[in-house]
Amino acid sequence: MVDATDKKCYVDFGYEDVPYDEKSRRVKQVFDSVADRYDVMNDIMSCGLHRLWKRFTVSLCQLKPGNRVLDLASGTGDLAARMWSAIGHNGELVVADINPAMLSNGRDRLIDEGISGNVRYVLADAESLPFPDRFFDVITIGFGLRNVTAKQNALRSMYHCLKPGGRLLVLEFSKPTVPGLSRLYDLYSFSVLPKMGRTIAGDEESYRYLAESIRRHPDQETLKCMMQEAGFESCQFYNLAGGIVAVHRGYRF
């Protein structure tokens, strides 16, 4: 497992192994490239299911009015928008992303939807969050953890920023659990998805990376163990779409 001390080691970038420092640069290139068509592609790739997955994730947050929440790797702000309505005007929403293009798109979209006032935008790396300890009630990261170079460091960083009783929700692609689904899913990911990326977003390589990075991402049980190792308790995962996507939840007590 990659640790903060191993900065000379190689890490995965899809099926490639790249130097530690290069991964974040290449992930940035991917998201710079897809930022403008990100929402459209999400809708097409998942047949709109990503909206249900995000709704389900927010329902697991147990949000209350007045909560302070952090949406990491916020992208175009889908999760953030849903959480904002639950925390009310007394709450505080922090929207963070490591990629300026995605953060800018997300900010524009949230402002267009009238979501403002108690919202802050932060360009931040999930591995070293610039927030005090015990600061947030809820942290979410939707389809972002697999792009983080040192996932364990990021989980530890999130753990420290949570208040006691706070929870982390990780929405991420995972490993299909329904028999026979894996073959179909592979066919879709490696044959259909890159072609869709080329046609709609004009970028085949980024969507090939998407498929590869999903395969390299830890499966449900491994991610749960990583969360427990970072200090989270009462960890539980919820498979969606036959395990193609899973929501992991862990608490800091």
């Binding site: 389900f56 329902s59 539980q236 919820y238 498979n239």
Partner: peptide
């Protein structure tokens, strides 16, 4: 085990 969605 109950499916996660039912549990949730």
């Amino acid at each position: 085990k109950l499916p996660g969605v039912i549990l949730a």
